[in-house]
Design a protein around this nucleic acid. Structure first.
Lengths: 175, 175
DNA sequence: CATTAATTTCAGTCTAGACAGAAACTAATG
DNA sequence: CATTAGTTTCTGTCTAGACTGAAATTAATG
């Protein structure tokens, strides 16, 4: 796999974006590379293309599998694992949201619920502050419920909804 | 400002979440603290409460101001700057999205458009790959347009919309 | 305009986590 | 079952960037 200047620019930028969102640079680069690649790639190919250590690639591929963003495929007459990325951008987007929710939002909800529970018995925390925490809990719960409902909506409907955009509000206004 | 166990838990968790989303831990902790605090706090108070260096607080406050998440207030008979956080969670959410868009999405769109432009003259990048990049550009543009429209919708309407949730699809289905 | 309070800047230290390379492991094939 | 290809684990190194504390700067007050 040889990278043309355009592909290089894309992969490097994606790596950079990764770091800004708390994702390891190499992981993000590999994902970008696999997204662009028309064919599945094996680990050594990836290592050579990106100029990183073979072991680093191995770890990153594991991580990407943990995110459900890539999967292993096997090619006829080749023992090596090959990897290909989810190509549908909507699916990719949803998968990422799903995972981040599971890893970050859900634990946060747990923490907030604990705070609220402990708050009942707690005399030292001012009521005002307890309320603030309850507000956050309620806010995130609202977002989560909404996400839960959107999750089940079929892709084309969702797309229609987005394309509709602001027009939906006029409908609401009349209601 | 003394932190009760509940407040401590909240602030520490928020700091942790920050790091997962590419935000400096101290910055996130200070933001959490200012959100909880019923009154504006001055830098030294924050430093003492969180146990970090005064200078570190100074830098972090600057950063939070850059994000439009906190603002300076002055108290009668006190020369020191005091800081208070945006308290409305919906506003806070919108401000964060706005800023991340400006800092990360907009540059990404620029990069993608450049790739597409350069792609016209470029003979070495396979058409399939060029198409992939165009797909990403289109996808992000769709999201951005949608965001642009939602941005102007008044808060209560937006809330109604979210509460409506899945029901909106049945309306679309009939259409 | 000297004094003091408050804030920012800067230079150096420290650390988490990314990364390389070697060693260990696993499993396919003749 | 030895050989070899492929993958993972592990240990140590390196570095970006968070953080500190001191020095420099700014601004308010009598």
């Amino acid at each position: 796999m040889k990278l043309t200047p355009i592909m290089q620019k894309y992969v490097l930028h994606w790596g950079e974006m990764g770091t800004r969102w708390g994702v390891n640079r190499t992981v993000a680069q590999i994902h970008a590379l696999l997204y662009l690649s028309p064919t599945p790639l094996h680990a050594e190919d990836i290592a050579d293309t990106l100029g990183v250590a073979r072991s680093n690639v191995s770890t990153s591929l594991k991580e990407l599998q943990g995110w459900n963003l890539i999967k292993i495929v096997h090619l006829m007459g080749d023992r090596r694992d090959h990897f290909e990325s989810v190509k549908d951008l909507w699916d990719m987007f949803m998968v990422i949201i799903e995972e981040r929710k599971r890893r970050e939002i859900d634990p946060t909800l747990t923490m907030l619920r604990n705070c609220v529970l402990e708050g009942d018995a707690d005399q030292e925390t001012p009521p005002e502050i307890k309320q603030r925490i309850r507000d956050v809990l309620e806010f995130i719960e609202t977002l989560t419920t909404w996400h839960e409902q959107m999750r089940t909506v079929p892709k084309p409907t969702l797309l229609k909804l987005m394309k509709l955009g602001g027009k939906i509000t006029s409908f609401l206004g009349k209601k």
